[in-house]
Design a protein around this nucleic acid. Sequence first.
DNA 1: CTGTTAGCGCATTCAG
DNA 2: CTGAATGCGCTAACAG
Lengths: 345, 345
Amino acid sequence: VPISIRDVAASAGVSLGTVSKVLNERAGAQIAPETRERVRRAARELGYHPSAVARALVRKQMDTLGLVLPPGSTSPIRAPFFSALVDGIFQAAAERRQNITVFTGHRWRNAQESLPYYRDGRCDGLLLCFQLPESDIVTALLDARIPMVTLNDIHDDPRATTVDVDNIAGAREMTAYLLSIGHRNIGLICGLASLNFVAPRIEGYKRALSAAGVPFDPALVAAGESTRRSIAEQVDTLLTLPIARRPTALFCLSDGLATDTFIALAARGVRIPQEISVAGFNDDGSASWHEPPLTTMRQPFVDLGERAIDLLIERIKDPSLPAVVEFLKTELVVRGSTAPPAVTR
Amino acid sequence: VPISIRDVAASAGVSLGTVSKVLNERAGAQIAPETRERVRRAARELGYHPSAVARALVRKQMDTLGLVLPPGSTSPIRAPFFSALVDGIFQAAAERRQNITVFTGHRWRNAQESLPYYRDGRCDGLLLCFQLPESDIVTALLDARIPMVTLNDIHDDPRATTVDVDNIAGAREMTAYLLSIGHRNIGLICGLASLNFVAPRIEGYKRALSAAGVPFDPALVAAGESTRRSIAEQVDTLLTLPIARRPTALFCLSDGLATDTFIALAARGVRIPQEISVAGFNDDGSASWHEPPLTTMRQPFVDLGERAIDLLIERIKDPSLPAVVEFLKTELVVRGSTAPPAVTR
DNA sequence: CTGTTAGCGCATTCAG
DNA sequence: CTGAATGCGCTAACAG
C-alpha cells in the first residue's frame, strides 16, 4: 500500500502543502516548531517516503546522471580502465547525492535512435565515455542541448565540455623517465591507433625525445589492433628490428596493451626488466597484478569523476555556461618492470 | 523548449488522448489509419519524445532496475569479478529494454537509511550483489515488499529469490579434475572465509575428496583475509607443511585469490605449474592475463544477469510470485597453470 | 504561520 | 473511431 503525502497530511491534521514544506526544509519557509514535529512524526509512523518520480515531474529534475559507455560488443566495462573510471564516477556521484543510470550503448545503432532515450527526462545530463571519436552522437547531443560532459575524449566540437588527463604531458614524462635511466631506443606499442588516447601520447613521446636530443625513429612505433594477437605481432615487429635500432624499452600506451605485451614477451622467453623494460599508462589496477609489477602513469580516476560530475551539475543548473576543457595531471608510478638497459649491447 | 504531447495534438488537429493512443500502439485501440499517420508525422516533425517521468507517474513503472553493489570502500566494481557480473547484467538489461541505475552503497550506513532511496519509485525493483551476508538490508527490503533478486548470495530468508552458480558442484568438479591428473594433496586458498562463496566451495572440495577416497586434511585449508599480504601468508602456511602433507596443487577459491597466489609464488621462486599447480574459480577475465594462463571454473555471467533480470521482471509484474532459488552450471576451463604433479616427491 | 489552488506531462476511463 | 475529463503524487505560488 503506497502511502502518499496526503495520508501524512491527514494523519498530522495539516494541509498537503505544509507537509511538503516541512519535509523539504525549504529555505524561508516559516513553520511552527510544534507543527513541524507533528508532521515529522506522522511521516515517520506511516513510513512515508516521497515519490522521486512525482517530484521530478514538477521540478523537472531527477538528480540522476546518465553514464554512456562506448557501443560495441567488446564489453568495455570489463576492461580494468573503464572499471576504474566508472568506479571514480560512482564515488563522486554518491558524494553529491546524484544517481547514475548506465547506458551501455549496445542497443543504440546511431544518434537518431539513441537520442530519445537520453532526453526522456530520466536523467538531467549525460556523462560520455567513449574510446573512439563518436562525432555523430556527440554532435547530435550538443544540437539537442542536452547538458553533457565528455570524459577522456577530446572532441573537436568547441561546444563540448571535457575533462581528461594531460596525455601529452604524461607520455612526455614517462618517456623522459625511460630516457633518464639510460634507454635510447624506446619502442611504442600503440594498439588500435584510432583510439582517442593514442595520438596525444605519441605526441608526448616525440616531445620528450626531441627535448633530449634523441632522434625520432618511426620504425619504433608499432600499431595495429588492440587484440592480443595483434599486440604480439607489434611486439615481434619491434623485437626483430636490426640490433642497433632494436628497443631496450617498450612504452605501451595503456596498461591493457602492457598486459598483452607481457604475455607476448613471456611466450618468447624475454625477461622483464632484465632484457627489456616495459611501461604502461593508466595504472588501472591491472598494473599491480603483473609480475613484475608494471611501471605506469597513474590517472586520477576519482578526480576525473569528480570534475566531470561537478562540471555537469553546473551546466545542468545553468545551461548557458561556456564549454571548458580541463586537463588533470597524471603521476608516474615506478615499479619493477623498468630498469636501465643491459650494458652489453 | 520542451515539447509535450499537447503540442503534437494541436499540430495534428486531434485530441491529446488520441495522440497517446497512436504513439503507444495500445492493443484494441482503433484508430483511423489516416489520423494515425497525421499524428505520427506531427510527432516526428516536432521532434516529440514522451517524458519517461510523467509516464512513470501514471503507470507506476519506470522500466528501471536498481543495481545494489556491496558497501565498503573497497571499490568492488573495480574487481574483475564484479565487472564481469555487472557487465552481464547490463547486457541482459539492454536486451529487455530496462535501464539500470547503480547504487554503490558507499553512502548508506544501514538498512534504515538506505531504504527510502530504494523505494522512491526511481526503480521498479532491485538486483542485489553482495559478497558478505547483509542480512539486515535484505530483511528490511523483503519486509518493505520491494521486488528484488539476490545475485550470488544465497540468503537464509526463504522469501528471497536468488540466482547463483552451483558452487558446490563447481568446486567438486575442479577438485575432481585436480585429483584426476594425479594430485592428492590439494591446498585451498580461501581468503576471507566469511565471503558468501567460500563455504559452499569448501563443501564441494570435501565431497570430491570423499568420492575419491582421499582423506580430508584440515591443514590444507588456508584462510585469513583477502588482502595480498594475507594471501601470501596463506600460501606460506601451505608451502611450509611437512613434505608428506605439502600440497602439489593450490585451489584458490576465486580468480582474485589466484592472482595474489601467483604473485606470492613468484616472489618465492616457485614455478607454475612445474613445481605447483594453481587453479582459480570464476574466469572473470583476469584469468587469461596470467602467465601461465589460469585454469579455472567459468561462471556464466551473462546467463546469471539474464536469469536475475527475468526473475525480477516477473516479480515486478506479479509480486505474489513465490521465491525461487536457481543454480546455474559452471564450466571447467583448463589452461596452463595446472599440470600433473612432479613425479619426484 | 498555514491552507488552497494550479498545474508538471501523460494514460486512461467514459461519453459521444 | 475520437474527444473530454480525471488524476498519478508532488511542489510552488498565492492567499488568507
